[in-house]
Amino acid sequence: MMLLRGIWDSRQARLGLALLALFAAVAALGPFLTRDPAAFLADPLLPPSAEFWLGTTRQGQDAFAQLIVGTRSSLGIGLLVGVLVMSIGSLVGLTAAYFGGLVDDVLSLIVGVFLILPGLPLAVLLAAFLEAGPLTIAAVLVLTGWAWNARVVRAQALALRRRDYVLAAIALGEHPLRIMLLEMLPNMTSIVFSSFIAATMHAIGAQVGLEFLGLGDVSQVTWGTNLFWAVTNQDILTESWWTILPTGLAIALFGFALAQVNYGVDEVTSPRLKVDRAYTALVGQRTGLRRLLTPVVLARSDADRERTSA
């Protein structure tokens, strides 16, 4: 509860949440409010106008409608992958850290191998051979993405493993799963949340990339397939920036929103930032090694001898 309260306190987090709400609204309601993105409505490659806010595509479709309708699928799959990656990664990481020993060695080895295999080439290979479609892409992305989360969670969990309350719980004979989920996990919210955000962003980007290559279901309207259709010729570029630019902006904006919320979470879980600000306010900005030189600031009561030393 305090966590949510704290997040609300942060200005950045509020901004992020507002943006996320906007995206959610667009995803949920957008398709009902725009034209049919698949319909061939006008001349191809018309620039933005009052009638077509983002102009028309190479096939004469409403680019704005495509962007709006694509939101649902792209964000949905992205978030799904993010949640799955976070869950699987956290579970594996916690298990490895909790049990240690052989379990840890084996799990770490598996994580290591998955981590080192380059994601996109593997994803391309998988997606090319399997049936096209968003769920395939989701599965492929989860497979190539879970390892990073596992490593991050494991590192943090290892530090917690030696804490008093964990040792006490073990001594009391609590079930390992209980300890992992109820004792350790709540103390790792910051890092789990950050890595969830990273995983989601990566998933969205990778998804768009795969679909752009033509490995998604090109009959569906998603951000990635929009780009695919905008670029089907060898000739990547024409003057029609409106078919390409908005997609990237939307992705970046979403990422930005997530990052802002993340910042809010960070602020709550690390009060150091507040202390830093109070300190800088008092002694002014001290760069580099000067920070290690204890400043002398006379107390307010000696106001007439205000003297700040080196």
Partner: peptide
């Protein structure tokens, strides 16, 4: 230069930049 203006602005800006998919920025 911890706490400076640069330190406050650059990290969020760079994060924002990093959120763009590679190929989009390339385009």
């Amino acid at each position: 230069r911890r706490g400076s203006v640069a330190d406050a602005l650059l990290p969020p800006l760079l994060t924002f930049l990093g959120a763009f998919p590679y190929f989009w920025l390339a385009m």
